[in-house]
Amino acid sequence: MTDRLNLPGVEWRRVSPKYVWVDVISTVVLALVLLAASCLPAFLSHVALWWILPVVVFVIMVLVIAFVPRRVRAIGFQLRDDDLLFRRGLLFQRFVSVPYGRMQLIDITRGPVSRAVGLSDLHFVTAAASSSVAIPGLPLLDAEELRDKLVALAETRRAGL
């Protein structure tokens, strides 16, 4: 495990464990849709071999769902002095550092499942679409507090594009 990306000396803030349920439910929904779609060739062609496809999809989706808790634990962020550090991903790891002055806007969104468990997602939007810093699974109060803090930080370090 030493080959994994890691930043020494960073104390990551993690997202709420309740987010596991949100992620599991949305993944299950996705899995059902994919399963239904993968059954189509078998139904249409009456060739028994096509039933392998939904089986494969089923196995993959079960694995994906089994790893959801670890994937959620892998999401982390930290407010450093001058930039926001964000990480996510288990198999495909990704770290992003965004200077506060680059903030264009902050979005807080709440899906139906998130709302049921009192969570919300925070998007930190810069002029670059590829920055894509989206911190999911924050309790609403935390998200609003974080938003206000980020806006205040961005205000003190306001920069051009």
């Binding site: 990306l5 991903g89 495909f92 790891q93 990704r94 770290f95 992003v96 550092s97 680059r102 920055s131």
Partner: peptide
């Protein structure tokens, strides 16, 4: 705008 770093299974 920001700096990123990423790693997939092959790279790992």
């Amino acid at each position: 705008q920001s700096i990123g770093i990423s790693q997939g299974p092959l790279y790992r």
